[in-house]
Design a protein around this nucleic acid. Structure first.
Lengths: 219, 219
DNA sequence: TCGGTCTTTATACATATGTATAACAGGACC
DNA sequence: GGTCCTGTTATACATATGTATAAAGACCGA
C-alpha cells in the first residue's frame, strides 16, 4: 500500500498568488525574513513547496510581490481613511493622521514586515522603486491635504511640511508599534495630531470627539 | 606534503569580540540578517568559523552583542554632538539634532542594520530591553535639552514634545538615509531644525552658520 | 630552549534551504 | 464516461548553515 498522495483542489491563479503572498508576509512579520522559507510559506498557504515555483519564477520574485502588496496596502488604507469624512480640511487631515497611528496600521507585525524588507530595498533596484513610489504617494496625499488648509504658504513650504509630517508619523508609527507599553492609550494619536497642528499652525484637536480614542459625540 | 595549516596571531579577547561584532554589523548592513552567516562573519573578521563559538555561546548571542553595540554607539554619538558646543540651549539642541541627521548617523547601512534586528527585538526579551533602553536614553537626552529652553511648559508637555521630536528625527533619519536622492543636500537637517523649532516654539536656525551644511562663519 | 596553556584552526555532521524535474490527478470539455 | 490540459504533488539534488569536537601551534614563563 502506497502512502496516500495528498488530495487537493485547483484554485485560480489569483487565489494562489495572494495566498502565497499573504503567507510570506505573515511569516516575515512573525519571524523576520529568515523565517519565510519556501517550505514554511507553502505550509502556511496550504500547498506544497513546489507550487511556489509554479506561480513565481523564484523566491526572490515572491518576496518582491509581497513587498509591493505591503506598500500598496498601506497607501490604500490611508486613502480609505479620508473617504466619507466630512469636508473640513482640518477634519480630513486629522482623520488621515489618526488612521496611520492606530491599528491596523499601527501594528508591530506591520513594522517588522516593513523592516524585514529594508535591506532588499537597498540592493534591489526594483524594490527601491516600489519603496520610493509608496513613500512619495503617501507624502503627496499629505501635501495635498496640507494645501487645502486656509493658509498662505511660501514657495516650497508645503513640501517641507509634508516631509516633516510624514517623518513624524513614520517615527510615531515605528515606536508606537514596537513599544506599545511606553505610551498611554490614544497617546500616540494625540501626539501626532497636536504636533502636526503645531508644525502647520492649525488646531487639529478641535474635532477629536469624532475620533474613537476620545469617545463619541452625544447624539 | 600536507596542505599548510593557516598561520595566525593570538589576539586579546576584546579585539576578537569587537572584530566579530563589527563584521556581523557590516554584513547585516550590507545584505540583511541572512547575509551574516557564521562563515561570512568569520571571513570578514579574518578568522575561521570555529572561533566564533569560542567567544560567543551561539550565533544568537553574537547577534545580541552586535545589536547592543549598535544601540550604545548611536546614543554615544548623540552625546558627543553636544560636547564642546557653546552653552546656549538652542545651540546645543540644534547641534544634537543636526548630528542625528547627517553622516555618519544618517547612513543607509545604519538604517538597514537597525531594521535587520527589528524582528529579533520583538521575539527576544533581552533585545527588547536593549531597544527600549536605547530609545528612552535618546528621548531623555532630548527632553533634558528641551527643558533647558527658556519656556514655561505645562505638566507633561515636555514629555510629549520629546516623543514628537524623537519620532520626527527617527522618520527623517530613515527616509533621508534610504532615499538620499529625494532630498537636496542639507535639506534633511534644515527640515529637522525648522520643524523642531515649530514644535517647541523656538528658533533653532539662528545659529546655523555654525553648522557645516550652511558654510562657516567668516573669521 | 623547553613545556604548558589556551587561542585558533580543521574537520565532521546533521539538518535546512532553494531549485529542478517527473509523476499524478482534478476538473473542464466533448 | 472518456480525453486532455495543466495545476499540484512528490522526489531528488547540490549546496549552505549552525554546531560539536579534536588537533595544532602561538605565546608565556621558566
Amino acid at each position: 500500500m502506497q502512502p496516500a498522495r495528498r488530495l487537493y483542489r485547483r484554485e485560480s491563479e489569483e487565489n494562489r498568488r495572494s495566498a502565497l503572498i499573504a503567507a510570506t508576509q505573515e511569516l516575515v512579520a512573525e519571524g523576520g525574513p529568515e523565517a519565510a522559507t519556501v517550505r514554511a510559506i507553502a505550509e502556511r498557504a496550504g500547498v506544497t513547496p513546489g507550487l511556489i515555483r509554479h506561480y513565481f519564477q523564484s523566491k526572490d520574485e515572491l518576496n518582491r510581490a509581497a513587498y509591493r502588496t505591503l506598500m500598496d496596502g498601506m497607501t490604500a488604507k490611508g486613502a480609505d481613511a479620508i473617504e466619507g469624512v466630512g469636508a473640513g480640511p482640518e477634519e480630513r487631515l486629522a482623520a488621515f493622521i489618526a488612521a496611520s497611528l492606530r491599528p491596523p496600521v499601527l501594528d508591530a507585525g506591520a513594522v517588522v514586515l516593513w523592516a524585514g524588507y529594508m535591506h532588499k530595498v537597498r540592493s534591489d533596484a526594483d524594490l527601491l522603486a516600489v519603496h520610493e513610489a509608496g513613500y512619495l504617494a503617501y507624502r503627496d496625499t499629505l501635501q495635498r491635504l496640507i494645501e487645502t488648509l486656509p493658509r498662505a504658504p511660501t514657495p516650497g513650504q508645503t513640501r517641507r511640511e509634508a516631509i516633516a509630517c510624514n517623518a513624524l508619523i513614520d517615527g510615531l508609527w515605528v515606536e508606537g508599534s514596537l513599544l506599545p507599553g511606553a505610551f498611554a492609550p490614544g497617546e500616540v494619536v494625540t501626539i501626532g495630531l497636536v504636533t502636526v497642528g503645531a508644525i502647520l499652525g492649525v488646531d487639529l484637536m478641535a474635532n477629536t470627539a469624532l475620533l474613537p480614542e476620545f469617545g463619541r459625540m452625544p447624539t
